[in-house]
Design a protein around this nucleic acid. Structure first.
Length: 490
RNA sequence: GGUUCCUUGGCCGAGCGGUUAGGCACUGGUCUGCAAAACCAGGUACGGCGGUUCGAGUCCGCCAGGAACCUCCA
């Protein structure tokens, strides 16, 4: 029943059958956050995309080692002499220890990811904890002649690399184009050529995050941490490398070049890139200032938000679009997702109300096959969700008695809904009623409904409706059935 | 300027050569004292112009509009 998994590989620009290097095992590396700002909706996308991938791989019985880094050093704010580590800049602004800032945002990231039901990676290496490994990679590249030292900094020689290796295999860039089209930046004089990128940067005097190296007191270059840490934890070659599309160039292209010189191999065989989340058609990003933090989503405290949204609404919203498509944020879209998810949630609750028959008029194996086929086709979560809504309709019809289902099929249906909704899509469908005092609440509500029933029997519609309306106002939804009434918290 | 990608119904969002995507909203019906929920039924679509094909949102070309990357970024 489980299909073979096809994944879109950016390297080949087509869907490919996924075959791991070592049968039964998957090495996955995903570019994690730079911890200098609060996690926002953009951070949720790759986290959820690769969480879905991991959950599905685990379900397919692969042993997965999922490495997702924390970038707490190494990305430059400006080029060359103005070079300053982002973390350090923010730290000075707030007069905090740089690592204190990094730790604060790392904690925040973890907190919000767990609210979104994103599972922890197997290993979460910090760039700052792997400076030694990064220096080793630089030495290796220098030894092989593909890097040069300049004024205490070390640069990767892209032109030389391009002579013997296919620079641009991932992004399709050509070195000549890069040379002629690169925008004029300050301090290019240390580099031999514009596309060259830093492996090690000498720290400016005011730069407080610095480490000793054979070349200078400084810090590792832009793209080095991923090469060094993926090699350390997943080996010279591993299965899947993931990240946002905005990292495709230059980050991943440079990573491939570094690793190829260092180890002789393209580090990952499958490269997966999630698309951006946009606001009014424009990328949601730190530098654009149009991002909404996850905290704001959950509290509703942002001028762009008409209301607060539950973490599961956001997860469902993201999963309703394919990971390689842009997804446009709007309150209307979020609210539609909220209602849709609620219907799904309610249907799962309703499964327990179904009475089995001798035989089925529904096709559960077909439903199962459809779900697996959707996931196997490059993690097509929107198609999977469409099939789940077919099941919602099926469940409600079964409850209404329009369809019939055998006991074994019912058991199977229940398991499949649980599998796809909870285990694989990672959606928490519990309705959030606290269990502590719910029994007393149940008793009170039963009493209210009993009183209403008596009123209705006496044709006192006005009082009966008043009770229903008032309960509605408080937040209880009353559903009058033909024989009895039920209620639920809205 | 270079590279890559996108344009689907009121909104979101799949599909990518021939058969209902799905959700939200909307309309009619069933049920109900009336509602709500649920169920049944229904409508609205592939940016424009050419081309390939028996047949094109789906392939090709041109045009228009938009985006991402080329600079830290998920």
């Amino acid at each position: 029943m489980k299909n073979q998994l096809y994944l879109y590989n950016t390297l080949s620009r087509k869907k490919e059958l996924f075959e791991p290097l070592i049968p039964g095992r998957v090495g996955l590396y995903v570019c994690g956050p730079t911890v200098y700002g609060d996690p926002h909706l953009g951070h949720a996308r790759p986290a959820i995309t690769f969480d879905l991938l991991t959950r599905f791989l685990l379900h397919l019985d692969y042993k997965v080692r999922y490495v997702r880094n924390i970038t707490d050093v190494g990305h430059l704010e400006n080029d060359a002499d103005e070079g300053e580590d982002k973390i350090a800049k923010k730290a000075k602004l707030e007069e905090l220890e740089p690592m204190e800032v990094a730790q604060y945002y790392t904690n925040r990231y973890h907190h919000y990811m767990s609210l979104l039901m994103v599972k922890d990676p197997s290993i979460e290496p910090h760039a700052s904890g792997h400076v030694i490994e990064q220096i080793e990679v630089i030495k290796s590249i220098l030894d092989k002649g593909y890097a040069y030292e300049s004024n205490g900094s070390v640069y990767f020689d892209v032109k030389k690399y391009d002579e013997g290796f296919p620079y641009g295999i991932l992004s399709g860039r050509k070195v000549e184009d890069l040379i002629s089209n690169t925008r004029t930046l300050d301090g290019q004089n240390e580099k031999r050529s514009a596309p060259d990128f830093a492996l090690w940067k000498k720290a400016a005097p005011e730069h407080i995050m610095r480490w000793p190296s054979p070349w200078s007191e400084g810090f590792p270059g832009w793209h080095l941490e991923c090469s060094a840490m993926s090699k350390k934890y997943l080996g010279e070659q591993f299965d899947i490398h993931g990240g946002g599309m905005d990292l495709l160039f230059p980050h991943h292209e440079c990573e491939i070049a570094q690793s190829t010189v260092d180890t002789g191999k393209v580090p990952a065989r499958y490269w997966m890139h999630n698309n951006m989340i946009t606001v009014n058609g424009q990328k949601m990003g730190k530098s654009l200032g149009n991002f909404i933090t996850l905290e704001e989503f959950f509290t509703g405290n942002n001028k762009n938000l008409e209301q607060a949204y539950e973490p599961m609404t956001i997860r469902f919203f993201i999963l309703q679009a394919h990971y390689r498509s842009t997804l446009d944020f709007s309150n209307a879209a979020l609210q539609a997702a909220e209602k849709g998810f609620d219907r799904l949630r309610q249907a799962i609750e309703n499964i327990s109300k179904i009475n089995p028959s001798d035989k089925s008029s529904v096709d559960i194996p077909a439903f199962e096959q459809n779900c697996y086929a959707a996931l196997a086709d490059d993690l097509n979560s929107p198609i999977l969700i469409a099939h789940l809504f077919d099941a919602v309709k099926m469940i409600n019809s079964l409850v209404a008695g329009n369809l019939s289902i055998s006991e074994s099929d019912l058991l199977q249906l229940n398991q499949l809904m649980n599998l796809f909704v909870s285990d694989i899509l990672g959606l928490d469908v519990s309705l959030g009623q606290s269990t502590n005092d719910s029994s007393k609440l149940d008793e009170v509500m039963d009493l209210m409904l009993q009183v209403r029933s008596d009123l209705k029997n006496n044709k006192d519609w006005a009082t009966a409706d008043k009770i229903r309306d008032e309960l509605n106002r408080i937040g209880f939804e009353i559903k009058d059935g033909s024989s009895s009434a039920t209620w639920q918290l809205k």
